[in-house]
Design a protein around this nucleic acid. Structure first.
Lengths: 336, 336
DNA sequence: ATTAGTAAATAAAACCTTTTAGCGCAATTT
DNA sequence: AAATTGCGCTAAAAGGTTTTATTTACTAAT
């Protein structure tokens, strides 16, 4: 186990100063008018001995860590897991690393995590904010550290944001159900003030209004157990004799499907928000409102990188279209 | 945006030296015989002004970053995603953070990632090693940096390791299929030398031998597209007129299920390695060999933490039992 | 009266970079 | 002749800790 080689070792070996080596290594040779001959000599030597600067010392001096903080709702949910994977590989190419944590929608944990990441001097944040995190995000902004929100945002706060067009997605899905001839269409949501939920709910309501239909809405507690969710969904669907349901998240839809299996009732026509392996495979396969995961990840990173480079001033809000993937669960209703 | 408060600010404010403050903050007050009165005075002041040491400077001086590197096959696969989530919340309690990357089984990417994490001086590694990563892991060991492997290991290398009892899991699963009366039982694996695959294959073969049955084995290319996998699985199952299949990973099983849907053939009795939401919900639900995810995560962290504290010398290999979760896909065969 | 020992605190080195400010010299301008 | 500019490079400061070696001011023992 050899000792790590330092920039001073290089300077000594070549009989020049540390400063010169540093300038050359940081692509400032031209700017600092270092002769080409010396530049080449240094570069060659550095390559030969395989010198790598100490990132910690570098970070301490520059204040930049090249680490981004990813604060996500739940890494084990495929929607977030997939976004995380895409984000990770994108920033990787730019020399950034990701340090992440799941909040499970617990605002206190989120606050603590952000504080810790801040203390570690991450260069920027990507956050799916839980209810009540507005103040913390505001503080970050005031500390001049780049933050991009995704999936949801705070209406009262000017922030960068990337998300799907939840209103239109829910609107289209609901319209599709109406067109297929369903008459008693329910909507399942969460007790939460998060914007994406509000938008989906509004999309559903608007479509129901347009079609002059009565609306049925059931909310589930965010911290409800699987059992509790299943129970309330069973009651909602059966007691209202719904012939179609729009679920506002993939895991709510999965709870619904589990309920139908457990309590042995026939799941009516249904649509889920966010695609999932399970939806493609079930018999019948499930129609979904699919968020453009790849585009969301790309835009998140683009905006964050631009901001890190100080290339944008005004906040950017990107709303990307969803896609309604029509499958077997919403075939036209046969009226008896 | 106020300036960050430093340890020297505290020393100055209290009219004492930086050293004393540092000793007190690092719980060395007793050891260094700092008077209790002063200790309390410093602690109170620190709390009052909310001083937090600069982690970078600390890391630079101590060589410890309190960051662990997690090199995982694919964060968007629920098996790995769940382990990642558990690991993350466990180490969080100990003041460590996780920095992660997915390798997608690409050994070059894995090597590069490990190098980068090493350059960033992570304190330890948790790795699901891809084929060919043996040298790199060996180098890490020689650099005296703690490494714990999981899911698979290298037979020729003494390393800490945590994994499931793949042999027994596959053996039990195969036996179960035999007992249910199936006669043409296939096994689907990957072209890979990874130990977990070999062990599962051995378990299958041993059980087939014990039951005096002919074995059918199909391997899929690791980098095969979904389409290619589906095609070869269809051929394997149909042409051999299999009446049961054991899939060595959850995603192979999912490809099989997709194939049966796409090509419209009846999936025979089946068992998958690693549970997945989809397996519980399908009709019929799928029997699985379930790995003890929670125990794996806990043991990974325990071993890594012990090693970081220098409390263990000998390498530890933990093999944890799998659970065969019997569902509808393997009900007793009805002979015509 | 000197030495030894101890309690309580500290100055300075070490960790390894980046960056500011400037040096010595030759060539050019005033 | 004196002042300015350009060139190629560098000394030293700065970034904020931890830790080693040392100091100071006592008390107790020889």
């Amino acid at each position: 186990m050899k000792k790590r080689i330092l920039i001073s070792d290089i300077a000594k070996a070549l009989g020049i100063s540390v400063t010169t080596v540093s300038f050359i290594l940081n692509d400032k040779a031209k700017e600092k008018r270092i002769s080409e001959a010396l530049t080449k000599r240094v570069l060659d030597y550095v390559k030969k001995v395989g010198y790598k600067p100490n990132e910690l010392a570098k970070s301490l001096r520059t204040g930049k860590t090249k680490i981004l903080g990813l604060i996500i709702e739940d890494i084990s949910n495929p929607f977030f897991g997939n976004i995380a994977r895409l984000i990770e590989s994108k920033v990787y190419e730019q020399g950034y690393r990701i340090i992440y944590c799941s909040t499970n929608n617990d605002v206190d944990k989120a606050r603590e995590l952000i504080q810790m990441f801040y203390d570690r001097q991450v260069d920027g944040f990507i956050i799916t904010p839980s209810d009540g995190l507005e103040d913390t995000v505001k503080q970050l902004q005031q500390s001049n550290i780049p933050v991009v929100l995704f999936d949801r945002y705070f209406p009262g706060l000017e922030t960068d944001y990337v998300g799907a067009d939840n209103f239109q997605g829910a609107f289209d899905a609901t319209n599709h159900l109406c067109q297929q001839g369903y008459k008693r269409i329910g909507f399942v949501s969460l007790y939460s003030d998060q914007t994406q939920m509000k938008e989906r709910s509004d999309g559903y309501l608007k479509a129901m209004d347009n079609n002059k239909q009565q609306s049925f809405i059931q909310k589930v507690q965010m911290d409800a157990s699987d059992e509790e969710a299943m129970d309330s969904l069973k009651d909602f669907i059966c007691e209202n004799r719904l012939d179609a349901v729009l679920f506002s998240t993939n895991y709510l839809a999965i709870s619904g499907l589990k309920a139908s299996k457990k309590y042995n009732f026939v799941m009516p026509a249904m649509i889920a928000f966010d695609d999932h392996t399970v939806f493609k495979l079930l018999e019948p396969s499930i129609t979904v409102v699919s968020q453009p995961i790849k585009e969301i990840a790309e835009n998140l990173i683009n905006i964050l990188l631009l901001r890190l480079q100080g290339k944008i001033k005004a906040t950017r809000k990107m709303v990307l279209p969803c896609e309604l993937k029509i499958r077997e669960s919403t075939k036209a209703k046969v009226t008896l």
